[in-house]
């Protein structure tokens, strides 16, 4: 068989996070399944964060076919494909992970819409998954938009995120990730948002007093490959990739939940007096949802008709799956 040929083919997979992250877990399982199912004809090398560059650079590397696979999260990819910034909008998704997983990966219509968006940039979308909910850590409790008045929140440099926190009355402060801890400690900023695993890893909970699960947005990332590379593969290899990716969707949801659960227990153990708001009441969520409406208009202004249709389609699909769940 072909597996006796001397050198295995090299595929390179660049991720945006460090070893031990949800993305790394995804890439490792991808490597394991691809190598196993290709009978060792393919070898996958994983490049964790910091080895090949920033998120922006990694996407360019996929495009130049320096790496074949990569993670591309909307915060960065939004600069190339403005429509994917839809994932940054607040209170859009269901507060049930499982429903979001189905919407993002199993709905054929949405799959087609997204595939076309990515194809414009010579990318092939493999999967969309959540790495857990964005969680606020702050110095004071937050229940309503008014509670954000004057709060200096650190956000990624994305116009929609800045607009969102402006809409709540906060003053969004862009800051490099590595300065967030010190800035919280010195009260240069009052809060930040990140998924639980990042909050634990960077010890942000040590320098804030409240942790608020508003479930305002999942921290979403996407796995991509170079479209020309993918199309040039023989049919069996293409099926190999799509098969592995399909199996990974449920796997990564499980991993993500376990990861964030474990890290949350660790945080609780390390700082027992940390105040945690595990959820907001439906009224409180509604107040935030209302306050964040202007951000959706902004999104539509930024992305035009395509963006408006996508947003509608996404809202529609989420509602359909939520209704199904109810019945």
């Amino acid at each position: 068989t072909a597996s006796t040929s001397d050198q295995p083919i090299q595929w390179r997979f660049a991720i945006e996070e460090t070893i031990g992250s949800v993305q790394h877990q995804y890439a490792m399982k991808f490597k394991e399944l691809v190598e196993e199912r290709s009978n060792g004809e393919i070898e996958v090398t994983i490049y964790p964060y910091g080895t090949l560059g920033t998120s922006d650079q990694i996407t360019e590397l996929v495009d130049m076919e320096v790496v074949q696979f990569a993670m591309a999260s909307p915060g960065h990819l939004g600069k190339l494909i403005p429509e994917v910034q839809v994932f940054l909008l607040h209170f859009l998704f269901s507060d049930d992970d499982e429903i979001n997983n189905q919407v993002l990966n199993k709905d054929p219509r949405l799959q087609k819409t997204f595939a076309e968006l990515y194809a414009r940039k010579r990318l092939k979308l493999l999967s969309i998954f959540s790495e857990g909910w964005q969680v606020w850590t702050t110095k004071d409790p937050i229940h309503r938009p008014e509670d954000f008045e004057g709060v200096k929140m650190r956000v990624m440099t994305s116009p929609l995120l800045i607009a969102a926190y402006n809409a709540y009355g906060a003053s969004p402060t862009p800051l490099p990730y590595s300065e967030v801890y010190s800035a919280l400690q010195l009260n240069m900023i009052d809060g930040q948002e990140n998924p639980v695993f990042a909050i634990q890893e960077m010890n942000f909970y040590e320098v804030t007093d409240w942790m608020i699960f508003a479930r305002h947005a999942p921290f979403i990332t996407t796995a991509v490959t170079n479209r020309e590379f993918f199309d040039s593969l023989p049919a069996e290899r293409q099926e190999l990739v799509t098969g592995v990716v399909a199996d990974l969707n449920d796997y990564i949801l499980k991993v993500q939940r376990e990861f964030n659960q474990e890290r949350l227990s660790l945080i609780r153990k390390n700082k027992p007096d940390l105040e945690i708001i595990t959820e907001l009441t439906p009224e409180e969520r509604e107040a935030f949802r209302q306050a964040s409406q202007p951000v959706r208009d902004r999104f539509i202004r930024m992305t035009g008709e395509d963006g408006r249709k996508l947003l509608e389609e996404l809202k529609q699909t989420i509602k359909e799956y939520e209704d199904q769940q109810q019945n």
Binding site: E60, D63, G78, L80, T157, P159
Partner: peptide, 15 residues
């Protein structure tokens, strides 16, 4: 060559 890639991707500065 690199600029060509950036141009194709149509990367714009966020702000």
């Amino acid at each position: 060559e690199y600029i060509n890639t950036v141009r194709f991707l149509d990367t714009i500065s966020p702000v």
